[in-house]
Amino acid sequence: MKYILPFLIFVFGLQAQAQLTPATAPAVKGKFFVSVDDEADIFVNGAQFHHSPLNESESPELELKPSDRIVVKLKNTLGKGRFMLLFMSTDRKQMISFTSGSFKILTDPTASDFTPTDFAGFKKQAKAVQGEFAEPYLLPFKSSSKWVWGEVDVSSIGCVVTPQMFKANTRK
């Protein structure tokens, strides 16, 4: 009997600690869906993952997780530039919509990766594409993704994936 109370306190303490400690978000399998005018190369954690030519494309499947770093090298050759990105899980239950608030403009347009310290130092958000050129929405799944671009015709934008970016797909 004298051991029951300390044991219960220990068990309840472990349970309380488990509730307070954030769970590590698991990787989510899925694909990027891309629309670009004119060209985009997508790098994940420093490795080139997908080349998107003019118009729409979908990437090979990958596992995306919080803390992954995405760099998009953008190239515009004619007129204006615009880029839209969506990540959709294979089971269609989760998605990430990317907006201008998701990306920062990298100071080096040739960079394919960055450190967390570098990312904190990038001050400029990607530019939201406005006006007629911001229409139409061309991706195969409805989302909150928006058209974005860097500052100049050839630029790079970067993003760090966070657990909060993964949202339930309510638009099936």
Rank of each mutant, 00 (worst) to 15 (best):
S35F: 12
T107P: 00
K104R: 12
L64E: 00
S35K: 08
I9F: 06
A16H: 11
S89I: 08
M84V: 12
L86M: 08
D41F: 14
F87M: 13
K29P: 07
P116N: 14
Q15L: 15
K123M: 02
F10L: 14
V44K: 00
K123T: 14
Q15E: 10
K127R: 14
V11C: 12
A16E: 08
A23P: 04
Q19W: 12
V44A: 06
G30Y: 13
G30A: 09
L85T: 06
D91T: 08
L14D: 11
E63N: 10
Q94F: 08
D108V: 09
K124I: 01
D68L: 06
A126D: 02
A40E: 01
K127T: 15
L85Q: 02
D38W: 08
N55V: 08
S97I: 00
Q19S: 14
I9K: 07
F103M: 07
V44I: 10
E61W: 05
G121K: 12
Q48A: 09
S35P: 07
A120D: 15
G121S: 14
D38A: 13
A47N: 14
A111W: 11
F7M: 10
S67E: 11
P26M: 13
A16F: 08
S89Q: 05
S57D: 05
F83R: 08
D91L: 02
A126W: 01
F49N: 02
Q48C: 12
P109C: 08
F122V: 09
P26N: 14
Q15H: 15
F33P: 05
T99Q: 00
M88L: 04
A128N: 03
Q17M: 13
I70R: 05
T77M: 10
P116F: 03
D113M: 00
R92A: 09
Q125D: 10
F119G: 02
K124A: 02
P26F: 14
S89F: 04
M95Y: 04
